[in-house]
Design a protein around this nucleic acid. Structure first.
Lengths: 223, 223
DNA sequence: AATCAAACTGACCATCGGGTCATAAATGGA
DNA sequence: TCCATTTATGACCCGATGGTCAGTTTGATT
């Protein structure tokens, strides 16, 4: 193997490989992400039915045909735009909850993650609250993974309550029902955040919700 | 006025009048109602977007053109089908709550009316939970009266809490927030009722919700 | 039986929008 | 510079559907 081939040629080889498998691919990923972001903006503003594929292309600054190089259909764009966010939320949520020690702290972490995440991703919040949740509730099969993520989140809460109940820290309630109640109240909180689009939801709102949950679930009256 | 004209002719006159102003109109009202019921069945099954106007006509057992003699558009059918039910729910709710004496009973009445009404009108429940609520949340202007009814219901709860708080029966919480919390938890209850389409929602579920609310809002720990 | 108006109907129209593809631009290696 | 390959584009296609209306049925009245 001649030494004079090493530096330059190898660099070229590496660069070429990078161009084909790395940089090119990375550029594609970036565009893909940009499309999803544009899609979220448009879907949040107009809803699924009132959105025309060309709207998304325009928002993303590309032609309609280009969209179909990255996604096979309008429906798949929609789904991908939401799944991306849902996965991230799930990840954040797990991290924050497992970092907390007591059930109260875990509950607080659950609320905080959602408040923060949805605060920073209002498009996602709006789409989810105003129509995607409903689609999941109907049996739309294409939302299967999303539904799975939501249920996983509830299961995590339920498990937390079961453990806390076993330790006598919360009343001996059905952990499933407790989890669903947390879920319901959180949803209400998020909806109100949506109503004041822009200015952050009152901290009062969140502390009230936390207070309600602690009072009604804790074993000891001290909160 | 000849007597021999009386029996027969008067009957004819009465019948004619009835035919034109009463029976005819009543028949029209009845058909209108039948259309709305058919519409609810179809919209509940397929959702707004996936419903074709002809589906509603078929379900109602009439031609598509006939629909347009009673309603000006698909959207108006949808709206009318939901408003009819929403008005009735509001009426029932007001009656039951004002019949109750204590705030606990009023709260129980609020829950019971919703449980009963939605149990008996599952199509309405499904449409409202899966898509119409979302449409209201977006600023869809055509849903204005519906939104007004929902807000009136929440205001009624808030007023109840304000009065109870003044009497020291509930903790000195923001009555608005308390009302919204009741609303949130009730919605969760209804959603679960929807999931077990058919068999009635577990009474456990409802009593759990009532219990949670009482514990977290009552002034005295006794529940 | 004849007449008439009201109620009904579904074939038809016009529009709309998701998805395609022939063509053009860009990129990069020789 | 020139060619090859990848990427981008928007005019076009076509199935779907909300709404219309010319024609039919109904049924009451004379």
């Amino acid at each position: 193997m001649p030494a004079d081939r090493c530096i330059i040629t190898d660099w070229v080889v590496i660069f070429t490989m990078a161009a084909f498998s790395g940089v090119r691919k990375a550029a594609g990923e970036q565009r893909r992400g940009a499309i999803l972001q544009a899609a979220r903006a448009v879907f949040a503003r107009q809803g699924y039915a009132d959105t025309v594929v060309e709207d998304i292309a325009t928002q993303a600054g590309i032609g309609k045909g280009t969209l179909y190089l990255y996604f096979p259909s309008k429906e798949q764009i929609y789904l991908a735009a939401l799944l991306e966010e849902a996965r991230q939320l799930d990840t954040d949520s797990r991290a924050a909850m497992s970092a907390a020690a007591t059930w109260r702290d875990k509950l607080g972490a659950y609320l905080k993650v959602r408040l923060d995440y949805f605060g920073a991703h209002q498009d996602f919040l709006r789409i989810y609250m105003t129509e995607f949740r409903g689609m999941c509730m109907q049996g739309k099969p294409f939302a299967a993974e999303f539904i799975h993520l939501v249920e996983a989140g509830e299961a995590q809460l339920a498990q937390m309550f079961a453990a806390a109940a076993a330790r006598g820290e919360v009343r001996p309630i059905d952990p499933e029902l407790a989890a669903l109640t947390v879920s319901d109240i959180t949803r209400g909180l998020m909806e109100r955040q949506l109503r004041n689009w822009g200015r952050p939801v009152g901290v009062d709102d969140a502390t009230f919700a936390f207070d309600i949950l602690c009072r009604s679930l804790a074993a000891s009256p001290t909160c």
